[in-house]
Design a protein around this nucleic acid. Structure first.
Length: 213
DNA sequence: GACCAGGCACATC
DNA sequence: GATGTGCATGGT
């Protein structure tokens, strides 16, 4: 599987669907917060939790950290795993204040590997969440692998079903120019394709409508 | 009522 | 390094 295929997939998807304008969110922090809350969770439920935080004017990292644990859990409840996510979101908010909204930032290197290691060290941030934050919140050129990407690549391009995150990420990063705009659009187009296939009843494995195939 | 959704940490082998 | 398990809500 090489350069050509990885490029061709992108061009076909872009011609079909056009730009996707990702990630949904009004600010870098809101994107970061959404990346944590959407872990193994439907985006619609995440939107409810974000709306709750906005209603009580507690979206920003400082307010998240100032909130009582129970209040934060209550706001996050619709997004599922709310006890777990209240801890994870607090960890990420602390990291954000220390590393992003801080003068120290100016002295820090701006390279991808530095920031990837930094955010991956936060408890509750794994590879997908890290790459989503780096790409969609910071605009750094890293490729996001999610369940949709895995399913599409397995079903339509024959990659092993349980291929590791790192191997699949390398497949894209080794065969594409490191361009944040390209990576942004590419991942968003995978999600769009998966949803279109489902909507048109051309189902991917584990699609809820798969039994009607 | 079952199954699923844009994962992750931790234990165990 | 691979595999299994708990975490929880809301839509279909």
């Amino acid at each position: 599987m090489g350069n050509k295929l990885v490029n061709n997939i992108y061009h076909v998807l872009f011609e079909c669907f056009g730009p996707q304008y990702w990630w949904p969110g009004d600010s870098p922090w809101e994107i970061c917060l959404g990346a944590v809350l959407t872990q193994n969770t439907n985006w619609g439920n995440v939107e409810k939790a974000i709306a709750n935080l906005k209603t009580i004017d507690s979206l920003c990292p400082r307010k998240i950290l100032e909130m009582k644990r129970e209040s934060l859990e209550e706001a996050l409840r619709p997004s599922g795993y709310f006890k777990l996510k209240s801890v994870r979101l607090s960890n990420v908010a602390r990291w954000w204040l220390e590393n992003v909204e801080n003068d120290k930032l100016k002295k820090r290197p701006s390279n991808l590997d530095y920031w990837r290691d930094s955010i991956l060290a936060v408890n509750g941030v794994g590879p997908e969440t890290a790459d989503s934050i780096l790409l969609y919140s910071f605009g750094l050129p890293t490729f996001v692998i999610d369940a949709y990407t895995r399913r599409i690549m397995h079903r339509h391009f024959n990659t092993p079903e349980n291929v590791s995150y790192a191997v699949l990420r390398d497949l894209f990063m080794d065969n594409l120019p490191h361009d944040a705009k390209l990576f942004n659009e590419y991942h968003a187009l995978f999600v769009r394709l998966a949803k279109e296939l489902c909507r048109k009843n051309i189902c991917l494995p584990s699609c809820p409508f798969a039994s009607h195939e």
